[in-house]
Amino acid sequence: MTSGTSTGAGTGPGPGTGAGAGLCDGRVVAVTGAGRGLGRAHALAFAAEGARVVVNDLGVGLDGSPGADTPARQVVEEIRAAGGEAVAHAGDIATTEGAASLVQAALDAFGRLDTLVNNAGFLRDRMLVNLDEDDWDAVMRVHLKGHFLPLKHAAAHWRTQAKAGLVPQARIVNTSSGAGLSGSVGQGNYSAAKAGIIGLTLVAAAEMGRYGVQVNAIAPAARTRMTETAFAQAMAAPDSGFDAMAPENVSPLVVWLGSAASAGVTGRVFETEGGRITVMDGWRPGPGVDKGSRWTPAEAGATARELLARSEAPTPVHGTQ
């Protein structure tokens, strides 16, 4: 556990670091997988709104294999060049040590942690019959475990503060996907992990609210290394001049959710793409019948068909349209 100690850490936005009046002035934000794509866009957007940023990235390839570059440090240099404050963190957030050190990096560098954005991930796409156990485990590890462990250590830090009377205005923003909401052909491992992140978000919001922690999730659609193939046609330069697939389009909502301005918003999932933001309603009870006694299989089948006829059709799985 990385509870750490700091002066007033997590009790509010804290003193601003610049002359501007940014939405996140004085807040300290940790972003995982922030070396490229969405994570990089989030880190830069938070810094532009006055946050001090811990930029986490392992620098691995699209499939999780070791990389030769150091993208986290490059993002830190971008933030500093623009007058902001940031530090790099290269720990593996899908390990207890790496996740704990992420929280500690924020405390060591800036004396507090206010917001955690879980974003790290990679792909190993296969049709289910061709999906190896290692590919299943690797994607689950990085996406789902890589959300759970940083969330656990950050939440434990904030709970310790709350119990000491320093109730934080803490925020966690998790990253799911349309694949987690409705599935995606060829991405059984990724879809399952992203659906699990939604369940984790709901539980964390319910458990941590009493300690001043809000937890929400986004399901973004944007151009990143992970989506170059899936969004190939949509990525063509638009005639309007608005690049709907730019990852920077997703970041404003993430910044707001990670700020004190989002007070009262927790346990929600937002789909966001281009200039569109949609609140996802999730699983809600539809038509139902209670017989008051046990059904026969034939009765259950006939009733199920009748109920399906009265219900809304599910969203098509990605790749089947």
Rank of each mutant, 00 (worst) to 15 (best):
V203F: 06
H89P: 15
E49P: 00
N56H: 08
L149W: 01
A41W: 01
E306Y: 14
G4T: 07
W256M: 01
V76M: 05
N118W: 00
Y211R: 04
V167H: 01
T224L: 04
H143L: 12
I218G: 01
R310H: 07
Q214D: 13
S65Q: 10
A47T: 08
A263L: 10
G14H: 12
P238I: 07
N249A: 13
G165C: 07
L307D: 07
C24V: 14
A155W: 10
W158M: 06
G275F: 09
Q321K: 05
S311E: 08
P13W: 09
T115K: 00
D281L: 10
A195T: 02
A51R: 00
T17H: 14
A230W: 11
S6M: 09
H143D: 10
A99R: 02
H89D: 13
S176E: 03
T278I: 13
A72L: 08
T272M: 04
F122E: 02
N56D: 08
W295Y: 15
R276T: 14
T70E: 12
A138R: 14
A100P: 03
A179V: 07
G14Q: 05
T303G: 11
S259M: 01
G10C: 11
T175C: 05
A9I: 11
D92Q: 11
D57H: 08
P287L: 05
W256E: 03
A232W: 05
V250E: 04
P252A: 06
A237M: 07
V142Q: 13
S311M: 09
V139T: 06
G91V: 09
G14E: 08
V142T: 15
V60H: 11
G91Q: 05
N216I: 03
E97D: 15
T227E: 12
A204W: 00
W136P: 09
G319Q: 11
G288P: 07
G33D: 05
L253N: 02
K291Q: 15
D57Y: 02
V103E: 02
E77Q: 06
E228I: 10
A164E: 13
D135E: 12
E228T: 14
M245Y: 10
V142I: 12
P66N: 06
G83N: 09
L149Y: 08
I218H: 02
H318K: 11
T32I: 03
Q187H: 14
N119S: 10
A94C: 10
G319W: 12
A309L: 14
E312R: 12
A234V: 09
A260S: 11
V29H: 05
V254E: 05
M1I: 06
H42K: 08
A90D: 15
G35N: 02
R284G: 11
H147L: 06
A206C: 01
N56T: 04
V255W: 03
P220V: 08
A86V: 05
T7W: 07
D137A: 13
G292P: 08
D92G: 03
A155D: 04
V129I: 14
V279M: 07
R284V: 14
G319A: 04
